[in-house]
Design a protein around this nucleic acid. Structure first.
Lengths: 232, 232
DNA sequence: TGTACATCAGTGAACGCGCGTTCACTGATGTAC
DNA sequence: TGTACATCAGTGAACGCGCGTTCACTGATGTAC
């Protein structure tokens, strides 16, 4: 009775059982991170949530930081799976912005804790985790650049310009995700507004594409001086 | 000798002295937040940094959370001061994107700890602080909307569209600030790249302005299907 | 100006608590024969 | 298939430590007369 997982009685091999507990630690951590940030979370809280003794933690991870890095890895694996699916499914002509935003929202909803973890720890208190997340997002931007380089107009852009463009889209998407994830549960109206606004933003960016000349000269649209009293 | 602030010998009235200690607590907190997130920071760490006994903390704040909210307030007061100065100075015709980005960067460098605090706690572990920051950023977006509504084209946009547009600019700016603040100190080259990229992004957004028709129909630029093998 | 009393910012001892980590252990699972 | 031994995931007691908070205190500053 002592060695069995509390509440569950049937199990596979020792290896499977270990894997099961390891996953339970990961899941428990994600659950607990709804309320607090990673470096406010204790090893004992995590093991308590799983229902094992604190010392058993060390059978799976050397430190909390190690667990955190595994979480980063898992989270981005999830997102890459999303992107791969989207790419392979092939977005239908037209509706591309709408469908992309919608797909992202569905994924965020389905894997909310992962996204929440990433959003919260991207600038969180643990250096190693911040660095790992930053690297993954950069990878993300680069992959998007490659995808986008197949579109008309964009196929003639420099790598640098493409990365800036992708970065802008990713910024808008991250902004949306970050607003979505701590929306009071099931506020469908606010959610709709956020999605609608993000679509607008991305469409606006796309609109600029045919007009970009690749130079960082001054703007093409003449803009008047901004002072306290300068309406037309 | 006992009552004097360690390391400083001359003081004003009791009220001034209290104010001085209060500010020391705030400054110490900002300094310590370089390494960790707010909810990983202890009351004792803060008082230790200032050089007072832990219990003296309560003469100034009831809880750490209260201190945190004061920090949010101070940080945004700093940013509003920046905006007001920028508005009153009046940005010269042309160069407007360049000057705006440059102004922001200078301010971030000058008040780095405040910006770092905001970036880190925007999605951090303390609910009340998150909420306060979110409200301030929203206010920010609204103010920018008002400013922008004086420009040609934009003066005909709906409030909603203007807010989406402002939100996009703020997202790009936040993205830049967040990258800037934990750049390894004085990496002038990376810093230049980040600024250059942000300028590109904002110029790109601006470029779209004359072409926006205010409708959320499908894009005007026809975009082909994205699959694994769809180059032109 | 001088004296007597009130205020209150900062002190220092003490508390109970949750923390991470150590250690020797238990007993079911796995393996060699 | 049956037995004897090895492995190792999880146990539980114990540790020293930093935490937030309480409390009665001290002594310089402020105020009333």
């Amino acid at each position: 009775m002592k060695r069995r997982r509390p509440g569950r009685e049937e199990h596979g091999s020792r290896t499977e059982q270990k894997q099961h507990t390891r996953q339970a630690l990961i899941d428990a951590t994600l659950r607990l991170l709804g309320d607090k940030s990673f470096d406010g979370l204790s090893l004992r809280e995590v093991t308590r949530e799983v229902g094992i003794v604190p010392t058993a933690f060390y059978r799976h991870f050397a430190t909390m930081e190690e667990l955190g890095l595994v979480l980063v890895d898992e989270s981005f694996r999830t997102m890459r799976r999303m992107l791969r699916a989207a790419r392979e499914g092939g977005l239908p002509q037209g509706q591309i912005v709408h469908r992309s935003v919608e797909t992202l929202v569905r994924y965020v909803r389905a894997h909310q804790p992962y996204f929440q973890f990433i959003a919260r720890e991207r600038f969180g208190g643990v250096e190693a985790i911040r660095t790992a997340i930053r690297a993954e997002i950069q990878l993300f931007v680069s992959e998007l650049s490659t995808d986008l380089s197949r579109f008309p107009f964009l196929d003639r852009w420099s790598t640098e310009d493409l990365q800036a463009f992708s970065g802008l889209i990713v910024s808008a998407m991250i902004g949306m995700v970050e607003e979505l994830i701590d929306l009071p549960a099931r506020d469908a109206e606010r959610e709709g507004e956020i999605i609608f606004r993000t679509e607008k933003q991305i469409r606006l960016i796309v609109l600029a594409v045919p007009h970009w000349n690749g130079k960082l000269g001054e703007t093409i649209v003449p803009l008047p001086e901004v002072t306290s009293e300068t309406p037309s």
